[in-house]
């Protein structure tokens, strides 16, 4: 019995694991909340593009010796606004515009890094994530940004919901849909910045999309989808960190794969909507 308790307690006797858990839990909760809106609006590709584009800013900040967060944040914001601007003009397809901009910014990052002679380990922790290397400062910054994002979602919940569900009617009702669209992109940029350190650029989209998509299979209202998604994200962080500790594997990959497993389970077995029950009904 004590063995079991020790098994569960051991990882958290180390402070870097406590910090890692806090950062991962905060990030995955807020990513699921914003991610719910992202998947409902079909913006998953933008959710992948912003983290990649922010790498350009991270690299510029690294070369200049400035804060990598601020560099990544500025790049993510600029990319978000550029995508919003171009897609509202309607000259080229939205996803084409996204593809052009984010790969350009990412390539800029690679170009700059290729000229750096000094140690680039910090940069690679942004690409692949290094949740166990976060400092207390990182944790507080993450918590502050996450609190701000949640506050904005709470304040503008009504507008975000209406615009995601029925933008035509929202606009006809006098809701400022253009501002809501840009605002959502800015929220996405903020989540990107705090998620980069935790799971890394290439896996941010998983935190945005996977827990939210799992929650959509289990709920029938946006507000509960956000809460259930956040709970799945937090649970995946805890389970993922255990897996990382005992199997000695990458924490970010373990967190993401735990979330993926949760999605597969919900996809197969969600009440009424699971593939297993639906498959049976179709055969009958």
């Amino acid at each position: 019995m004590e063995g079991i308790i020790d098994f569960f307690r051991e990882p958290w006797t180390f402070e870097f694991m406590q910090r890692g858990l806090l950062a991962a839990a905060i990030v995955s909760a807020v990513a699921a909340i914003v991610g719910s809106l992202v998947i409902l609006k079909g913006m998953a590709f933008i959710g992948d593009a912003l983290p990649h584009a922010s790498f350009g800013g991270v690299a510029v900040a690294f070369a200049l010796g400035e804060s990598l967060y601020i560099g990544g944040g500025i790049a993510a914001l600029l990319t978000a606004l550029a995508i919003g601007f171009i897609s509202r003009r309607g000259v080229i397809r939205n996803d084409t515009a996204i593809g052009i901009i984010f790969v350009g910014a990412f390539a800029l990052g690679i170009l700059i890094v290729s000229r750096q002679d000094n140690y680039t380990g910090d940069l690679f922790s942004f690409v692949f994530g290094n949740v166990l290397a976060v400092s207390w400062n990182d944790v507080w910054l993450t918590a502050a940004v996450a609190a701000f994002v949640v506050l904005i979602v709470l304040l503008f919940y009504k507008e975000l919901l209406f615009n995601a569900f029925d933008p035509t009617m929202a606009q006809a009702s006098g809701i400022p849909v253009a501002w809501i669209e840009y605002g959502l992109l800015v929220l996405l940029a903020l989540v990107t910045v705090i998620a980069m350190q935790t799971v890394g650029i290439v896996l941010v989209v998983a935190l945005l999309v996977t827990p939210a998509a799992t929650a959509q299979l289990l709920t029938r209202r946006l507000s509960t989808m956000m809460l259930v998604g956040a709970a799945i994200g937090v649970t995946s962080s805890v389970v993922g960190l255990y897996v990382a500790w005992y199997a000695d594997v990458s924490a970010s990959a373990a967190i993401v794969l735990t979330a993926t497993a949760a999605f597969i389970a919900a996809f197969l077995f969600a009440p009424a909507r699971g593939a297993v029950w639906r498959g049976g009904a179709r055969d009958a």
């Binding site: 409902l40 304040l155 507008e159 569900f165 929202a170 009702s173 209202r221 946006l222």
Partner: peptide, 28 residues
């Protein structure tokens, strides 16, 4: 033009008709 898979209940949808008149941030 409406996404029918969206997680909203029928009463949520009907209540949206009130949103425009409420002004930003105010709740129904």
């Amino acid at each position: 033009l409406v996404d029918w898979q969206f997680p909203v209940t029928v009463s949520d949808v009907v209540l949206m008709g009130r949103y425009g008149g409420l002004g930003v941030v105010r709740r129904p």
